[in-house]
């Protein structure tokens, strides 16, 4: 009788731990950064927002509106003429939002915050 009770409480604990782990894992996955790239259509310094046109899955064109997250990194990436490391064939130089122009090709990393796209990283990789 006692053994059965022990087994039951252990099983309940194990199930509880599993469910808790699942929730934490699911929330971690849900907040994972997405990487997108496309051409800048508009920049609004006042609201710290960017609009980019990208051609994503199934070659479908979409317009992505995103707001810079607090502390977001903005960088200009250029080919390094003297790379010492294969992982750093391109060098990144910090820039401001005012340095991002319509027409620039950018790579962004963003997370969903409700219905809003928050960008952690904006990297200009081609300027025309």
């Amino acid at each position: 009788m006692k053994d059965r009770k022990d087994l039951r409480s252990t099983s309940l604990l194990a199930v509880g731990v599993s469910i808790l782990s699942l929730f934490v894992w699911a929330s971690a996955v849900a907040t994972a950064a997405e990487r997108h790239s496309g051409r800048v259509v508009a920049v609004d310094a006042a609201t710290r927002t960017l609009v980019i046109d990208e051609i994503g899955a199934n070659a479908k064109e979409q317009r992505l509106r995103l707001r810079l997250a607090p502390g977001a990194q903005l960088v200009m990436s250029e080919r390094d003429e003297h790379p010492e490391d294969l992982q750093r064939a391109f060098k990144e130089v910090p820039i401001g939002l005012s340095d991002v122009n319509p027409g620039d090709f950018v790579v962004v990393e963003l997370v969903k915050a409700g219905k809003e796209n928050l960008a952690d990283l904006v990297m200009v990789t081609l300027r025309r």
Partner: peptide
């Protein structure tokens, strides 16, 4: 006695799971 051991084991399992979950990588890019 058994019950206490079992509970201790359960709590240890719970703490271990929480530690593992807490140490999970930051939203990582796959």
């Amino acid at each position: 006695m058994m019950c206490g051991k079992s509970r201790r084991a359960g709590f240890a399992l719970l703490i271990l799971a929480l530690i593992l979950v807490g140490c999970a990588k930051r939203p990582q890019l796959v």
